[in-house]
Design a protein around this nucleic acid. Structure first.
Lengths: 254, 254
DNA sequence: GCTTTGCTTCTACTGAGTGGAAGAAGGGGT
DNA sequence: ACCCCTTCTTCCACTCAGTAGAAGCAAAGC
């Protein structure tokens, strides 16, 4: 770009991408002014770039004047290959059919879990992990299942960071969490009890390939039904093992 | 931008978006040269812009050197609101559970159907309509179910265009297709017999809101199992009606 | 009517973007 | 090993497209 920029050397591309990056699970609908605030760009710059994004249907302006991600980006996103999700999905469906519970698949991305798939029906669950959304590892079933099987240096590094505390039940004391993770490793699955969301507990099993956790399968249920968690463990473990096997085969074939 | 451009007055934003737009269901993995060809931009321009998109993780370069849509766009895409899909999904899950067949939901976009959701398990189906992909209306079950209930001018306009012919069974003669659509309207659902893909047939029911088709629910089965189509009709119609009712309520609430 | 918020439009100002060309890299054929 | 072809990757002469402050408009709330 040219003349008068607040940040010299800043490309248009990076600005456009920053605008897109302003949207996330907690900020899925934004006004022009909010986008400008989140990106640090001048309102008129944002206005111009957003107009172009809207014309291309990357963004869409709702009736309330707020911008949202448009369908065209959803269409594009569907093209992103995910061999793991493709292999896992039918098994998630089986797990859903066998347990009647909503089922999700998550992977580790950095120090968070990223939900990459979900099979759900009409049963309401206290927290609905959206595909594409991220949560911390230590208070979530899938996060614990993943974390427990990471290398020791990673676990140590994770434990040395300040851990957020979504609920009073969240385990944030490193020693206690380390013991929890050791138990997860010993039993092969993880559980949580109102650690992420009050009123929710969960069970999750890691998808281990070569002893490395490439994903985790999880089920969240209402705390009122916590007694049902144990019956979910075996199906979870079975499906996780199946996914691991199929994924291993798929990777070997590629 | 500046000096030496092939197209004067062309913004960087539009170039970046064109690069993203170069990817579609039939071109999901592209070399740099192919992207340049599809966008009409110089190779070095594409190289530069693509590098930035890759850095941001909008694009990802595979082991074969080809670029693909990256996960970050998938994450963004998940933020695109789709009230219809959200309302419909649990019902699709019910339909899957009740029939054992893979189920999909499609909407009309322009003169094509766009697949916006799918519930599937381990059963292989001759054609797998990917969510986010598009197909012509006239040879697909969902397409016919949608087309039949569009306004007369739209149907007339659609029939006046040259209709592609994916298989020898595709109905492309306007008069015959019009009669087919009249039958769909009379019976309330559509079927296809190897019109889109050899070896596949389908049934589909429209989701009608105020007599307007806002979506269609469909099931594709192998032609070897064409005898099973009639048993799918009632569940399809029932689910379509349920979706319509829920969607109507959701829209009224907004 | 006044104030606040959120745009929408304008324009003086200038730095960022383009693409042809050369060279590098990789793969296949002889 | 050498040659040819394809696909990048890098460079730089050239120049036009992009920025953002400010003014004005529009809508909502008090």
């Amino acid at each position: 770009m040219a003349g008068g920029a607040r940040d010299l050397g800043r490309s248009v591309t990076s600005r456009v991408l920053d605008i897109l990056g302003a949207f996330d699970a907690h900020h899925s609908r934004l006004t022009l002014t909010e986008i400008a605030g989140r990106t640090g760009m001048a309102l008129s710059t944002v206005h111009r770039l957003v107009a172009e994004l809207e014309e291309w249907r990357a963004l869409r302006r709702g009736a309330d004047g707020r911008y949202q991600i448009g369908r065209r980006l959803w269409e594009l996103g569907q093209l992103a290959p995910d061999p793991l999700q493709e292999v896992a999905h039918p098994w998630l469906q089986e797990l859903f059919g066998g347990t009647g519970e909503n089922v999700h698949l998550a992977v580790r991305d950095g120090v968070e879990v990223l939900y990459v798939d979900k099979v759900y029906g009409k049963r309401a669950v206290p927290i609905v992990s959206r595909t594409g959304s991220r949560l911390p590892m230590h208070p979530t079933g899938v996060g614990k299942a993943l974390l427990a099987f990471e290398p020791g240096w990673f676990v140590g590094s994770y434990l040395s960071r300040p851990l957020e505390r979504p609920t009073p039940h969240t385990i944030t004391e490193p020693g206690r969490l380390a013991r929890e993770l050791a138990q997860v490793r010993a039993q092969g699955y993880a559980t949580t009890h109102e650690e992420m969301t009050l009123g929710s507990c969960s069970a999750a099993a890691p998808v281990l390939v070569g002893d490395r956790p490439v994903a985790a399968v999880g089920i969240v249920v209402s705390s009122r039904r916590v007694r049902e968690l144990p019956r979910l463990v075996d199906p979870l473990l079975a499906v996780a093992a199946r996914i691991a096997g199929d994924y291993r085969a798929a990777v070997a074939r590629a």
